[in-house]
Design a protein around this nucleic acid. Structure first.
Length: 823
RNA sequence: GGUCCGGUGGUGAAACUGGUAUACACGAGGGACUUAAAAUCCCUUGCCGCAAGGCGUGUGGGUUCGAUUCCCACCCGGACCACCA
């Protein structure tokens, strides 16, 4: 049929299904996108699309957005002569597969591998230029061997430890959750169950030890400013002091952290978190312990959600004990209250009701003493006597910086000065010292679940822990497991998991039954791509040296405080171990936006507004899907799907396809079209570099609109266009390129250079304004002089009309743009 | 409550460093082709006005020859954080 059509001189119909299958097969067979082995530091380019979780519901149009954007960038970089590394892998461990197993009794390995097969097929049908030979899956023993190795590295460096602590517990998933996995209304991010607090022994990684570096090194990164700020806020650095308060008639002390040591003279009571260890220790001296115990128990029952929605502060005084304010020597009442968090600072505060909103509310409710020790600078200068202030002091809350009063040796000092002086005084008297406090907490990494990497630790017959020797890795995840969640680790009940342990290590020895948080798997995957089959290291020193750091990383903004922070942490630990010579993995990072449903809501089963990329490919073709998703709007913006918009893009590609009919080798293109071509090359080049794919496509559409009016188009001209379109619509462009008699595929082609002398306009349109209003436009030679431009503008009939014979006061010429006349 | 981001046609969105606001696309209206429909092609499309012209980038001010862009105040929407001492 096709041959017949050719012989009749009829053009072939654009048939993406055929074209796309053909080229995808060819690329795969010829390993077109295999990572070049001759890459060097100078010409390497590492492009990383974020690691997908292969969910059972298949690929989402949002995935297609990430892979297309990265692929356009990759193909562009190759055409510039870069040796590109682009790979996709699978974040394969995790709760959904295990929950599915509990429901259906299908082994997670089976459902996960099925999901991966589907994902791989779907991603391949997008025509992305990734090196499939380097694909990795975090659930494979040759991958999680190294996840376990990383754990041992942390352990060796004293960064992994076990601790009994109050943890977030999801009773539906029967597991512990990291703070990052709890939603802001206190629910499990996976299953929406309200999270409770439980005391449990868990493994932690000491990410807090890296808080300052994780904060300071943000300055080195080219990341969206908002993202850096969110990470900064999450780390939450505060400068202040720790202060010790003696308990009256006792040798015990209460330690607190405060950012306002300058207000110490105004501290009138103390508040401990209900979980504070001193409450138990001072039990015998507390006269109302029944009441106190009741409050503690009530707090335990309360969920985070209850604590947050509760408006009024509550607490109980610890009667029978008092603390001494080291500055005033006054005895102060001590309370427990749940507005003080056990997990921040020392779990205790000095309360300064006059200068802290929370303390103020609490003092008001319980009728506690309020002493004002800071006033605003204007008020201080207005000459109010200190007596006058003392009288009116209780009426107002003042939480800002100001001037110290009622504070002995601090009086008259501004807050910054007063703070310094107070810290010096505390240090001299051994009552406290300067301290920097972070909100960031250590990362809880153990999970009482099956579908994860086993923690490579052994316990001997005395319960002492021993890391698994490196040569015994990987600790294999067994298959004989009952999936029913019990709250205990399913691995406890696996025969094969514990078989041979005693024989190998000694009588009474057993394995740690917990598995690692899946975030540990995804914190280092970008290293494995460099050397995925290496059995002796997570990656060879040569590969690390050649490819890292990642040149461009694209991922969702949801990972700001989880994955991105953890990956930076892993990298810094590798750096400290001397295994790498850089300490940030992703110097350049951008986010893609969310693709919403046609109804402007987030795509979900619930609304029935999901779009399956495979359906779109089936109906319109992968090239159309790719171009449409890039044309929708800025990459980082959230944008709704519009099926008519997809049709519009398909129309655009068809018009290009049909231009083949007009190709004539001998025709010489008009100067104006040559100019448009070079302007388009420049625009598309600049826009791809800035990831502004939407405007790049718009510019190419403009060119096609203009060219479509021509009778004949030269093959060379058309070829130039095919080159710049090729990263966006690679299948169609390969086909067109081939039909232009190029023997090599586009993988061998070079990105065209913009010839600025050809792109330059010979004529420009000048806008002429009179008193700021547009009155005329003039077409003039591009090299017109200032005087000539002004003279021409003033002589224009349209301008004369508005001048009304008056002499202009001022004439401004903005080169190549406009003339502004003021009368 | 705090922080950040945003508000431009009927819709998704353009606009370099302060310089002709609405590129490109969708939708809509009209026309050509067709027995008809689809597809395709052409024209129109911010608002008011017959026109000249006026008005227009959330609202009100300011700076400037000139403001979507800079400054101040406010309104609205979204995201994130949320008792962090």
């Amino acid at each position: 049929m096709a041959l017949e059509a050719d012989m009749l001189g009829m053009s072939k119909q654009y048939d993406p299904k055929k074209i796309e299958a053909k080229w995808q097969k060819k690329w795969e067979k010829e390993k077109t996108f295999q990572t070049p082995s001759d890459a060097t530091r100078a010409d390497k380019y590492y492009i990383l699309p974020q690691l997908p979780y292969p969910s059972g519901s298949g690929l989402h149009v949002g995935h297609a957005e990430v892979y297309t954007a990265c692929d356009i960038y990759a193909r562009y970089q190759r055409m510039l002569g870069k040796k590109v590394l682009q790979v996709i892998g699978w974040d394969a461990f995790g709760l959904p597969a295990e929950n599915y197993a509990i429901k259906t009794n299908v082994h997670p390995r089976k459902s996960t591998d099925q999901a991966i097969d589907m994902f791989r097929r779907q991603i391949k049908s997008l025509g992305v230029s990734v090196d499939w030979e380097r694909e990795v899956g975090s659930h494979n023993p040759d991958y999680y061997k190294w996840t376990q190795w990383f754990f041992l590295l942390f352990y060796k460096r004293g960064l992994a430890y076990r601790k009994k602590q109050s943890v977030n517990w999801c009773d539906s998933c029967k597991t512990v959750l990291a703070n990052e996995q709890v939603t802001n209304d206190g629910k499990c991010e996976r299953c929406d169950t309200v999270v409770e607090q439980r005391e449990m022994e868990q493994w932690y990684l000491k990410i807090t030890e890296y808080a300052d570096r994780l904060l300071n090194d943000l300055d080195k990164l080219d990341w969206p400013e908002e993202t850096k700020k969110r990470q900064k806020d999450w780390i939450g650095r505060s400068e202040g002091a720790e202060v010790e308060f003696q308990i009256k008639d006792s040798d015990k002390r209460i330690q607190v952290f405060t950012t306002r040591p300058d207000t110490l003279f105004g501290a009138t009571f103390m508040v401990l978190a209900p979980e504070h260890y001193l409450v138990e220790e001072l039990k015998n001296q507390i006269t109302n312990y029944d009441e106190v115990e009741k409050y503690i128990n009530d707090t335990k029952l309360k969920t985070d959600l209850d604590r947050q929605t509760q408006k009024e502060k509550s607490g109980v005084e610890l009667k029978g004990i008092k603390a001494i304010n080291p500055a005033t020597q006054k005895a102060m009442p001590i309370f427990i209250a749940d507005y003080v968090l056990a997990t921040y600072g020392f779990g205790a505060i000095m309360a300064v009701p006059a200068h802290d909103e929370r303390d103020w509310e609490f003092a008001k409710k319980y009728g506690l003493e309020i002493v004002s020790v800071v006033i605003s600078a204007p008020m201080f200068q207005s000459g109010l006597t200190s007596a006058g202030i003392q009288e009116g002091a209780e009426s107002e809350l003042f939480a800002d910086d100001g001037i110290a009063i009622n504070s002995d040796f601090l009086n008259g000092l501004a807050t910054a000065e007063a703070t310094k002086k107070m810290i010096n005084w505390l240090e001299e008297n051994k009552l406290g010292k300067r301290k920097i406090q972070y909100k960031l907490r250590d990362w809880s990494v153990s999970r009482q679940r099956f579908w994860g990497a086993p923690i490579p630790v052994l316990y001997d017959d005395k319960g002492e822990l021993h890391p698994v020797p490196e040569e015994d890795l990987p600790v294999i995840l067994p298959d004989d497991v009952d999936f029913k969640p019990t709250g205990e680790s399913p691995l406890n009940y696996s025969k094969s998991f514990n078989a041979g342990v005693e024989k190998k290590y000694g009588r009474g020895w057993r394995r740690e039954p917990d598995t690692l948080d899946t975030f540990m798997c995804s914190s280092w995957y970008y290293y494995r791509y460099l050397d995925p089959k290496n059995d002796g290291a997570f990656a060879s020193p040569e590969a690390l040296k050649k490819w890292m750091p990642v040149d461009f990383y694209l991922g969702g903004p949801e990972h700001v405080n989880g994955h991105l922070l953890y990956s930076r942490f892993f990298t810094k630990v590798l750096f400290d171990e001397g295994l790498i010579n850089f300490d940030e993995p992703f110097p350049l990072h951008r986010h893609q936006g969310l693709i919403l449903g046609e109804d402007n809501r987030k795509m979900s089963k619930r609304w029935g507004n999901s779009i399956n990329p495979t359906d779109v490919i089936e109906e319109f073709g992968a090239d159309t899907l790719r171009c449409y998703e890039m044309f929708m709007g800025p990459l980082e913006a959230d944008k709704p799907w519009d099926t008519n918009g997809v049709k519009g893009v398909r129309r655009f590609l068809e018009r290009i396809w049909n231009l083949q009919e007009k190709i004539d080798i001998d025709v010489v293109m008009p100067e104006k079209l040559t100019r448009t071509m070079h302007q388009t090359i420049k625009k598309v080049t600049d826009d791809i570099a800035k990831l502004r794919f939407n405007t790049a496509i718009a510019k190419m559409m403009e060119l096609i609109n203009e060219v479509s009016k021509e009778e004949k188009i030269s093959a060379e001209y058309f070829g130039l266009f095919v080159l710049i379109l090729s990263p966006f619509a690679p299948h169609m462009c390969e086909e067109l390129w081939q039909s232009l008699d190029h023997k090599d595929g586009l993988a061998e082609a070079k990105w065209p250079a913009c010839d600025m002398s050809l792109a330059k306009e010979t004529e420009i349109t000048l806008a002429v304004q009179v008193n700021g209003k547009l009155r005329d436009t003039l077409t003039v030679p591009a090299d017109i002089s200032d005087d000539e431009a002004k003279k021409l503008s003033l002589s224009s009939v349209n301008v004369q009309k508005w001048l009304e014979g008056k002499e202009p006061k001022k004439v401004i010429y903005v080169k190549g743009k406009l003339v502004s006349i003021v009368v």
